[in-house]
């Protein structure tokens, strides 16, 4: 099993000791190994429903110049396509609302909740 977010594979703290993990920068600051986005999301419980609870009208997106959703979405679900549209995947969505809030194109994002019992389940929220 992978250990997403671990600082240093050789100095895990599972034994309760206080290991000195991480790389040290010239200023002495400990730097953390970045983890991939897939690893980051791997620990989140998503009970994916059959219905897409958010839909994106890619035609509207083509005229958008800001594309705030692409970087702001914490689940990284909005991908720009080569033809200027937006590709969207609802499956690993936190249901936070960031996308429709930062969207400045009326009607581009249709936002609802997933069907009852589906979607993200936070166990340590």
């Amino acid at each position: 099993m992978s250990e997403p977010g671990s600082v240093n594979e050789t100095t895990g703290a599972a034994d309760g000791s206080l290991p000195l993990g991480g790389d040290t920068t010239p200023t002495g600051a400990l730097r953390w190994r970045g983890i991939s986005f897939e690893e980051r999301m791997a620990g989140v419980d998503f009970r994916v429903g059959a219905r897409a609870h958010i839909t994106v009208d890619s035609d509207v997106c083509r005229s958008c110049t800001t594309r705030g959703c692409v970087t702001a979405c914490p689940a990284n679900l909005f991908a720009p396509t080569s033809d200027g549209g937006i590709l969207f995947n609802y499956e690993e969505c936190f249901e936070c609302g960031t996308c429709y809030m930062v969207c400045n194109s009326e009607g581009a994002i249709t936002w609802t909740y997933p069907d009852g019992g589906h979607g993200v389940v936070f166990h340590h929220g």
Partner: peptide, 16 residues
């Protein structure tokens, strides 16, 4: 960083 050495990500979350 010194507080978090050796820790592992258990859950990532986002909310407004």
């Amino acid at each position: 960083a010194p507080y978090l050495r050796g820790s592992h990500l258990r859950e990532y979350a986002a909310h407004l």
